[in-house]
Simulated scan of single mutants.
Amino acid sequence: MPGSKRADARRNYARILAVAEEEVAAQGAGASLEHIARTAGVGSGTVRRHFPSRRALLEAVSRKRIEALAARAHELTGEPASAKSSGDALLEWLDEVVAYCVSARGLAAALSYDDAGADPVHGNSCAAALEEAGGPLLRRAADDGVLRPDVTVADLITLIVGIALATEHHPEPAAQAERLFRLAVAGLGPAGARA
């Protein structure tokens, strides 16, 4: 029966995603797909039908976090210019992206620009969503002259991903990631000014 198959498929998807969220939180981006399948009570083929690549699974696990970061970018973009400088608004959002990447295991891997496992039609949907959301913040900062005009949101995401991955096993990953990000941000403004 087609209707019951779709309902079964939806239940399987939800069960796999719930297990994957727990496993990625515990094990990081390298969580075992076979273990996820066993724990969800489905075959590994079912996992692969719903999530054809590890990246697809990581993107699904990270979707809510990405949506929250995109909403925050829109909120900051909508704030009146008198409430906060464009550089401060961009930096506040980027600080939140760094904090999410460090605290949410697997998010940095989902944002990475490695084409292996990326959807050939849509590319990296997590990174694309953040690029679109952060674009207005970045353009406003560049227009105000507090950010080099050649800096892109993709550049910033790549920088954040690198920092998050490099500090993942540090004894204090959040503090170290924030420190490294602050060092990097100092070079983003015109003539080395703060972004």
Results as ranks from 00 to 15, higher is better:
residue 82 S to F: 05
residue 183 L to M: 15
residue 161 V to K: 01
residue 108 A to E: 01
residue 67 E to R: 02
residue 46 T to Y: 01
residue 82 S to V: 08
residue 94 L to E: 06
residue 195 A to S: 02
residue 180 L to C: 13
residue 36 I to H: 00
residue 41 G to H: 04
residue 44 S to D: 14
residue 78 G to W: 03
residue 64 K to N: 10
residue 139 R to P: 08
residue 163 I to F: 15
residue 112 S to C: 11
residue 175 A to H: 14
residue 45 G to K: 01
residue 32 S to C: 03
residue 190 P to E: 04
residue 162 G to Y: 13
residue 170 H to I: 11
residue 194 R to A: 07
residue 30 G to S: 03
residue 55 R to Q: 13
residue 189 G to R: 01
residue 83 A to M: 14
residue 59 E to H: 00
residue 120 P to C: 01
residue 155 D to G: 08
residue 19 V to H: 02
residue 129 A to Q: 11
residue 89 A to W: 08
residue 115 D to Q: 12
residue 133 A to G: 04
residue 6 R to L: 14
residue 165 L to F: 09
residue 66 I to K: 02
residue 182 R to P: 07
residue 123 G to E: 12
residue 85 S to L: 03
residue 61 V to M: 00
residue 160 I to C: 12
residue 62 S to I: 03
residue 139 R to M: 12
residue 13 Y to M: 06
residue 187 G to M: 05
residue 184 A to V: 09
residue 104 A to G: 01
residue 158 T to P: 07
residue 101 C to A: 10
residue 39 T to A: 02
residue 2 P to L: 03
residue 59 E to N: 00
residue 65 R to M: 12
residue 7 A to D: 13
residue 114 D to P: 10
residue 53 S to I: 13
residue 191 A to L: 13
residue 189 G to A: 06
residue 62 S to V: 07
residue 124 N to K: 10
residue 93 W to R: 05
residue 40 A to F: 02
residue 132 E to K: 07
residue 7 A to E: 09
residue 99 A to P: 14
residue 55 R to G: 10
residue 128 A to I: 13
residue 44 S to R: 15
residue 107 L to G: 01
residue 12 N to R: 05
residue 174 A to C: 05
residue 172 E to R: 11
residue 13 Y to L: 15
residue 119 D to M: 12
residue 129 A to N: 03
residue 42 V to P: 04
residue 153 V to E: 01
residue 169 H to P: 14
residue 36 I to E: 01
residue 159 L to A: 11
residue 79 E to D: 14
residue 8 D to Y: 03
residue 136 P to R: 01
residue 98 V to N: 00
residue 27 Q to K: 06
residue 53 S to N: 12
residue 183 L to W: 15
residue 110 A to M: 00
residue 47 V to N: 00
residue 139 R to Q: 15
residue 105 R to A: 06
residue 100 Y to S: 06
residue 121 V to E: 14
residue 180 L to M: 15
residue 80 P to C: 03
residue 89 A to M: 05
residue 74 H to Q: 07
residue 13 Y to P: 03
residue 109 A to E: 11
residue 92 E to D: 15
residue 149 P to N: 09
residue 79 E to A: 12
residue 39 T to H: 00
residue 24 V to Q: 00
residue 67 E to S: 07
residue 122 H to S: 11
residue 24 V to P: 02
residue 41 G to L: 03
residue 98 V to L: 03
residue 96 E to P: 05
residue 50 H to Q: 02
residue 100 Y to K: 02
residue 48 R to T: 11
residue 49 R to L: 11
residue 160 I to H: 12
residue 165 L to D: 12
residue 124 N to M: 07
residue 114 D to L: 01
residue 73 A to W: 04
residue 34 E to Q: 04
residue 133 A to W: 10
residue 138 L to N: 04
residue 86 S to M: 05
residue 168 E to D: 10
residue 5 K to R: 07
residue 56 A to V: 11
residue 149 P to Y: 11
residue 101 C to V: 08
residue 195 A to G: 00
residue 30 G to K: 04
residue 30 G to F: 01
residue 94 L to K: 00
residue 19 V to A: 05
residue 46 T to E: 09
residue 153 V to M: 06
residue 100 Y to P: 02
residue 114 D to Q: 04
residue 66 I to D: 02
residue 183 L to Q: 14
residue 26 A to Q: 15
residue 132 E to D: 09
residue 194 R to G: 04
